[in-house]
Design a protein around this nucleic acid. Structure first.
Lengths: 214, 214
DNA sequence: TACTGTTTTAAACGCTTATTTGAAACAGCA
DNA sequence: TGCTGTTTCAAATAAGCGTTTAAAACAGTA
C-alpha cells in the first residue's frame, strides 16, 4: 500500500461520496474525514468546494475523452466508409469500462453517476464546464453517427443520441438498485454490470437504426 | 385569479423549486418565500420537509397512476390478444402529457424531472414510498410488455423497460437545455416538447422489438 | 359578545455548513 | 544549524439550515 497524497485522497473520497449522495448532500467534513485529512485542506488545495467538484470531473474525463478521441482518430479515419453503429456504441461502452478498470478501487457505476449528476444538479455551470472542455470530442463522435445514419435527419439524430445517452446513464447509474429487483435469467450467474452492457447494445442499435420519422 | 390555500401554494412552489434545483438545494425558506407564506407553515401543515416532498409526489402521482390504471383496464382487457408495443408506449406518453395539461401553470418537464430526482437523490426511501404506493400499476403495465414481447426473456425485458424509462426521463427532463443546442429541422416550427415525443416513440419501439440477446 | 379550535406570525432554538485564520509542523537547501 | 516556502492543523467565523415555540389573528358557534 503506497502512500497517496492529500490531494489524491481528497479526490478519491470526493468522487465516491459525490457519486453516492450528490454534491449538496456531501459536506466537506464528510470528504475530509473520509479522506483522513484536515478540513481546511480542501480550500487550501482546491480553493473552494465548487473547484473541487470540477477537479473530480477533470480527473476522470480527461483520460476518458483522450482515450475516446485517439480511438476515434485511429479507427474511423476513412471519410468514405460508413461507420458501423454497433461499433460506435461499443467503443463508447468500452471506453467507460476501460476508465473503470484503470482504477480498481472505483465502483462500477461511479463515473456514470457523476455524469448523471452533472446533468441533473449542476445548475448549468457544470454542463458548461464539461461542454467547454470536452465538447470537441463529443462533436466528433456525433459526426460519426451522422455518417452512420445518412437517412436520419439532423434533428432526429440529435435526439436519438440523447435517448441512447439517457438509457445508458439511467440503467448504469442505478444499477445497484435495479439489479436488486431485476429477474435473473440463470441463478448460477450473479448479475453484474456487464449484463447491462450486453443487453443495451442491441437495444440501442435497433433504436438508432429505426426508420426515420419523416 | 382565484385565491388558493396555503397548502396549495406551498405545494406549487415546492414542486417547481424541487424540479429546478433538487431536494437538498431547495430550502424551506426558499419555498415559503416563493409561496408567500410563513416559514412555519410547512412544518405546521406537513410535519416536516420529508413529508412535504412525499406530498408533492402524491399530488401528481395519484392522478397519474389512476389515469394509467383505468386506461390499462379499459384498453388491454383481453388476455389472449398480444398487446401492441407502440400502443403501450403511447399510452404512457399520453398519460404524462395529460397530467401536464391538467395544470397549465406547470412546466412541461416538471413531472419527469421529479421522477428523475426520486431515482437519483431519494436515497432509497423515496423510491420505497413510490414503489409501495404505485408499484401495482407499474407491475400491471410491465406485465403487458411481457405479453407484447413473448420472445424476450424476463431479465432482458426488465432492462429494456428501464432503458426506455431512462431515455425518456433524460431527454424530457433536460429538454430545456437540450433544445437550445439541438439542430432544427424547419425554422418555421419552434422546437416544442412534442418533438421529443414524436421522435422517441419509434426509437423505443425499435429497441423493445429488437431480437433478443440469447 | 365570549368562547372555541384552527391557522398564521415573528422570533428563537440548536445544529451544520463553507470558508478563513494564524500558528505549528514539515520539507529542501544554504 | 538556520532559513524559506509549503503543507497541515485546531479553532473560530458568519451564514444558513430544519424545526419549535408562544403569542397573535382568525373563523365559527353558542
Amino acid at each position: 500500500m503506497t502512500q497517496i497524497s492529500t490531494v489524491d485522497s481528497i479526490l478519491d473520497a470526493a468522487e465516491t461520496l459525490f457519486a453516492e449522495k450528490g454534491f449538496a448532500e456531501t459536506s466537506l467534513r464528510n470528504i475530509t474525514s473520509e479522506a483522513g485529512v484536515n478540513l481546511a485542506a480542501v480550500n487550501y488545495h482546491f480553493g473552494s468546494k465548487e473547484k473541487l467538484i470540477q477537479a473530480v470531473f477533470a480527473r476522470f474525463l480527461d483520460p476518458f475523452s483522450e482515450h475516446l478521441n485517439t480511438q476515434l482518430l485511429e479507427r474511423f479515419t476513412d471519410d468514405e466508409v460508413q461507420p458501423d453503429i454497433k461499433e460506435l456504441l461499443e467503443l463508447f461502452a468500452y471506453t467507460v469500462y476501460a476508465m473503470r478498470m484503470e482504477r480498481l478501487k472505483t465502483k462500477d457505476q461511479t463515473f456514470v453517476r457523476l455524469i448523471g449528476l452533472a446533468f441533473n444538479q449542476g445548475e448549468g455551470h457544470m454542463l458548461k464546464f464539461i461542454r467547454e472542455k470536452y465538447g470537441d470530442v463529443f462533436k466528433r463522435y456525433m459526426g460519426l453517427y451522422r455518417r452512420a445514419c445518412p437517412n436520419v435527419p439532423d434533428e432526429e439524430l440529435f435526439w436519438r443520441i440523447h435517448f441512447a445517452l439517457g438509457a445508458a446513464m439511467f440503467s448504469l447509474s442505478g444499477f445497484e438498485i435495479l439489479a436488486r429487483i431485476a429477474p435473473q435469467e440463470t441463478l448460477s450467474e450473479p448479475p453484474s454490470i456487464i449484463t447491462v452492457y450486453k443487453y443495451i447494445i442491441p437495444f440501442l442499435v435497433a433504436g438508432m437504426s429505426a426508420d426515420s420519422q419523416t
